[in-house]
């Protein structure tokens, strides 16, 4: 079953093309890594998939319906979006911040229910921020804050997770935990598209890699095919060494070309 369908997507900002002719499908249970060098258009593509990027041409369909025709609230409940370098403006507690993720699911006069509170606690457990629940967000480290933001996305229990560099600023333990979490979300029938710079983790955990170069999709296939194609070396201008981690083939950036 196709959860997200992107067709001939293009985007230009002030006349400069950012994305051109992107088409891809993300099925239920699929974890897709969006990879490519800085400025390749990963964030813009994620925002377009989330339906919040202005100036987009082409079609984005979520669960068979055009994103442009869906109400913002409906969209918010169907897909979760984690922005790059999210921050909180006010010193609120982690629990409150995670609870904000539940807001799109109820009308504005409805108070939070026990179900809301349970979802908040569960997602804090999942991202390992439950012990920070009563801390003020403004006192957290970058990695802790990112995990709290990811918990906010998970709290809404979305079908599709769109995350822009969810591993930035995380220590190795939490990088692995986050990838395992996304993997588990997809294994349970959800889907996720994640912009990543860590190709080792991308090849290891993801079902597919979508490699972007200057707004074009270069290759969109399984890690094995992408690794064998030589496109990673060409696009990144980096030499990769094949490695095997935990029984899965992956790559390690080794030399500048």
């Amino acid at each position: 079953m196709t959860v997200l369908a992107v067709d001939r997507l293009g985007c230009a900002l002030q006349g400069v093309p950012i994305l051109q002719g992107i088409s891809t499908r993300v099925g239920a249970g699929e974890l897709v890594a969006l990879v490519g060098p800085n400025g390749a258009g990963k964030s813009t593509l994620l925002r377009a998939m989330a339906g919040i990027q202005p100036g987009v041409q082409g079609q984005v369909q979520l669960d068979g319906r055009a994103v442009s025709g869906m109400g913002m609230r409906e969209l918010a409940a169907a897909r979760g979006y984690l922005a790059q370098a999210s921050d909180a403006a006010w010193p609120v507690t982690v629990r409150y911040l995670v609870g904000l993720g539940r807001l799109p699911l109820r009308a504005f006069w409805q108070p939070a229910t026990a179900g809301d509170a349970a979802a908040v606690e569960r997602s804090m457990q999942q991202t390992d921020v439950h012990y920070l629940a009563d801390r003020l967000v403004t006192t957290l480290s970058g990695g802790e804050r990112l995990r709290a933001m990811l918990a906010r996305v998970l709290a809404a229990e979305p079908l599709l997770i769109l995350a822009d560099e969810p591993l930035a600023a995380l220590d190795p333990r939490h990088q692995l935990q986050t990838m395992q979490l996304l993997r588990a979300h997809c294994d349970a029938g959800g889907s996720a598209v994640v912009a990543l710079h860590d190709l080792t983790l991308a090849c290891r955990f993801c079902d597919r890699l979508l490699l972007l170069e200057c707004g074009h999709a270069v290759i969109d296939d399984t890690p094995a095919v992408v690794m064998a194609s030589g496109e990673l070396e060409r696009v990144y201008r980096v030499g990769f060494e094949p490695v095997s981690v935990d029984g899965r083939a992956s790559v390690l950036p080794a030399s500048v070309r």
């Binding site: 403006a89 911040l97 904000l100 933001m149």
Partner: peptide
């Protein structure tokens, strides 16, 4: 309240 998380996140959460 949602704007605490910034314009982009507020937008993604359904508040244009």
């Amino acid at each position: 309240d949602v704007l605490t998380l910034g314009n982009e996140t507020a937008h993604a959460m359904g508040y244009d």
